[in-house]
């Protein structure tokens, strides 16, 4: 089980998204307030300093609302900078939907915050989060959660279910043998590919 220990030290999504980084039913008057809320959650979890929040807002000012990556979901982030203390994710669910100015995916109900100190450390956790959010039932459960602990539990349950599901897979020669982080991701990728 060394590989599992190694994966744990590299940080699954659940360890990068502690309850302190989750805010439920936030009231935000506009997209700036929504991004600010997710920035504050990143600060609260120790992933960033307050300057990162301003950098995320400046990103949208400069590049537009492309951060609304799916209907109802924004992925706020900025570049790796001195304001990032470690890889971290945050989730804010909004009490009322907020327009970000995106032509197809407005309005936003879920704001994800991402802080990355480099270009690679967050890749596996981001993949997990994308797969977690891709399922409408899980999205609904996230929106209906009443407190941060409930959302954290949803993410943990998803990770465990996925890892359990990956365990019987090594009868096939999946890259990495299905035990490492990468192997589990590969198996999961094939599974979701099969469903879609």
């Amino acid at each position: 089980m060394r590989s599992l220990e190694l994966a744990a030290t590299e940080g699954p999504l659940s360890s990068r998204l502690p309850p302190e980084a989750i805010r439920v039913g936030v009231t935000a008057g506009d997209w700036r307030a929504a991004v600010r809320a997710v920035g504050e959650a990143l600060v609260a979890s120790g992933a960033t300093t307050a300057a990162y929040t301003d950098e995320m807002i400046a990103t949208v000012d400069a590049l537009g609302p492309y951060i609304v990556i799916a209907p109802g979901i924004a992925l706020a982030h900025a570049r790796p900078s001195g304001a990032v203390r470690r890889t971290g994710f945050a989730i804010v669910t909004l009490a009322e939907p907020v327009a970000f100015g995106h032509t197809e995916n407005d309005p936003v109900r879920i704001v994800v915050g991402l802080a990355a100190p480099d270009e690679t450390g967050h890749v596996d956790a981001l993949a997990t989060l994308a797969d977690f959010l891709a399922d409408p039932d899980r999205q609904r459960a996230l929106l209906e959660a009443h407190d941060p602990a409930a959302i954290h539990a949803l993410v943990l349950a998803y990770e465990r279910g996925r890892d359990d599901g990956a365990a019987p897979a090594p009868t096939r020669p999946v890259e990495g043998g299905g035990e490492t982080d990468t192997g589990a991701a590969e198996t999961k990728a094939e599974r979701s590919g099969g469903i879609a």
């Binding site: 990103t59 492309y66 990556i69 982030h77 900025a78 991402l114 990355a116 967050h122 994308a130 979701s192």
Partner: peptide
């Protein structure tokens, strides 16, 4: 292609791989 190459662009690459 995304704004910074580490958020949505990574998601696009992952999805495109699948």
């Amino acid at each position: 292609v995304c704004g910074m190459g580490l958020g949505s662009g990574l998601l696009l690459r992952m999805q495109a791989e699948k």
